[in-house]
């Protein structure tokens, strides 16, 4: 008997959560072959799984290796499901320029944020690591991005985060482009100090933060 949609969503989620980065491909193919909605597969299957993995990370049951393999599992299945999404559904939300600020080459955190934003339907322009200040600003201008996301694991690049904000100000476009920051040495107080629009402590929170900043946040239901 063929698996139901709910069963397959559960298996997609479990594969991501349990680091089954190969098995998840077969499950995604089975899900696709059954003709179930690919966006549901991503959001209710894969993203549900990575959210659970993020919870375990916050509870210090999962660490970087586990999260890395969970995200690989998610990417592997995304490769199967994403091409099946009808055009009008993808890229519905705005563009985000993301990268690791100059002075650092650690990009695991940035990659997780990218996955989460893409899963939430943002178009992410990934500039990679050790990215010069002006590249963030120029790319955001050229692409019409509404948000710049800056990541670092090392204190050596914190100063360059401040410079991105300064450059946006000096070009008079700070109001149009929001800046969010995150990473090991970063804190809310650092974000406030350099005049960034937001800080998030992890990848899942980063999506909520961007939603809020660009006005995509779901309205809080009346009590």
């Amino acid at each position: 008997m063929a698996a139901t949609k709910e069963e397959l969503l559960q298996r997609l989620s479990d594969c991501v959560l349990n680091m089954e980065d190969e098995e998840v491909i077969d499950v995604a193919k089975e899900y696709a072959a059954a003709g179930y909605d690919p966006l549901d597969g991503i959001l209710k299957g894969l993203v549900a799984g990575i959210n659970k993995a993020s919870d375990l990370y916050e509870r210090e049951e999962y660490f970087i290796p586990e999260l890395l393999i969970c995200s690989s599992a998610m990417y592997n299945a995304l490769d199967v499901l994403r091409p099946l999404i009808p055009k009008e559904q993808s890229g519905g939300k705005c563009k985000v320029v993301i990268g690791v600020a100059r002075g650092d080459t650690h990009d695991i955190g940035k990659n997780l944020v990218k996955i989460m934003l893409e899963s939430a339907n943002y178009e992410v322009i990934d500039l990679g690591r050790d990215v010069p200040v002006e590249d963030f600003v120029n790319t955001a201008k050229r692409e019409g991005a509404k948000v710049i996301g800056l990541s670092t694991l090392m204190s050596t690049s914190m100063n360059n985060m401040a410079k991105v904000v300064e450059m946006l100000k000096s070009e008079g476009i700070k109001d149009q482009i929001k800046v969010i920051v995150g990473g090991g040495p970063i804190s809310q107080s650092f974000a406030d100090k350099i005049g960034a629009d937001g800080y998030s402590v992890n990848a899942a929170e980063a999506v909520k933060l961007v939603d809020r900043l660009v006005g995509n946040a779901e309205p809080i239901p009346a009590a």
Partner: peptide, 9 residues
């Protein structure tokens, strides 16, 4: 570091 790998690892 516990910031990277679990105590178990």
């Amino acid at each position: 570091s516990c910031t990277v790998v679990s105590p178990k690892v």
